[in-house]
Nucleic acid binder design. Structure first.
Length: 302
DNA sequence: GGTAGACCTGGACGC
DNA sequence: GCGTCCAGGTCTACC
């Protein structure tokens, strides 16, 4: 086992970052609430599948990993975890505003703002497509099915201290290459992705062939409208999904309006009367470049 | 630019 | 056990 610490820009709350949205409930993430530890399996560029155990440490994050790593693999893994938890992200400008708003003050108190990400944007786009037009239980099922059928397995047995933190599937999220080798019929009939199957397959093939360089968008300096345009060009990514992905990429000037957003805004400001997308957008427009964050972490009435 | 209808799955419900 | 209905975003065709 290899152990080390990674520093985070302060203020930082590991718990707030992990619990920022539902990703921690999706395979191959696994969350231990009593210990406040996050487990995850990832495939490094060398092809090695690694189990991670993460928790808060003074000044940042404690990271333990199995199996043993080379120096290069350790460096790669540090970068992966840094990205997943947004360790270097700076919210000070937003916090100065949020501190003045009673419904957002808890963000400052709890160091909220970071959104848990997958190691690759490919993985996050797939996850996001699997959240659309379906129930959360189905998202969990489809994600697990993809990993079970196409993910690379862990090579070795786990010691007891890792058992509870490695997802039972013991596999990493599938690579675009592995999914690209599949076919629509398999994804429909065995993985039960339904009409999403051609979207996932098309995306995997575009990334695997090099036609689409998704990972280059992670630290892109493209203006948000251009970034939005590129993400919307992906079949299966519409208005809601693109807003989620922009949040993940640290662009907060749009709001992922789904049925939950409509209900929440209705309860918060319209006495339960039905509202549309326009009302949701209007409710947070004053937060400008931060509106996505304000919406995401708003202290809703219920 | 706006809108209707189709796309799928799984759970809830009624019979 | 079977059939029907429903929730959940995005796409395409059409206006």
């Amino acid at each position: 086992m290899i152990e080390f610490h990674l520093p985070a820009r302060q203020p930082f709350s590991f718990y707030s970052a992990v619990r920022s949205h539902g990703w921690y409930q999706l395979a191959p993430f696994i969350w231990d609430e009593p210990r406040r530890e996050l487990g995850y399996l990832t495939r490094l560029s060398s092809g090695k599948v690694v189990v991670l155990r993460l928790r808060q440490a003074p000044g940042g994050v404690y990271l333990a990993a199995l199996p043993e790593l080379t120096v290069q693999e350790r460096d790669e893994l540090s970068g992966v975890v840094d990205w997943m938890l947004g360790l270097q992200m700076d919210f000070s400008a937003f916090y100065a505003l949020a501190a003045q708003e009673p419904k957002l003050r808890h963000m400052v108190e709890r160091s909220l703002g970071r959104v848990l990400r997958s190691p690759t944007l490919f993985e996050d786009v797939v996850r996001t497509i699997l959240t659309t037009n379906t129930l959360w239980a189905a998202t969990k099922r489809m994600t697990a099915a993809l990993i079970e059928q196409f993910g690379d397995p862990l090579a070795e047995e786990l010691p007891a201290e890792f058992e509870h933190l490695a997802h039972p599937l013991r596999r990493a999220f599938p690579t675009p290459q592995r999914l690209a080798e599949s076919d629509e019929q398999t994804l429909r009939s065995q993985t039960r992705l339904g009409y999403r199957a051609p979207y996932i397959l098309g995306l995997a093939r575009a990334v695997a062939s090099g036609e689409l360089d998704l990972e280059a968008l992670k630290n892109s300096h493209l203006p948000t409208p251009e970034l939005r345009k590129r993400l919307l060009a992906i079949k299966g990514v519409g208005g809601y999904a693109v807003a989620v992905l922009l949040m993940i990429l640290g662009r907060y000037d749009s709001i992922p309006v789904d049925s939950w957003a409509l209900k929440s805004v209705s309860n918060e400001w319209y006495d339960g009367q039905p509202v549309g997308k326009a009302e949701v957008k209007a409710a947070f427009a004053q937060w400008g470049e931060w509106q996505g964050l304000a919406y995401w972490f708003w202290d809703w009435k219920e």
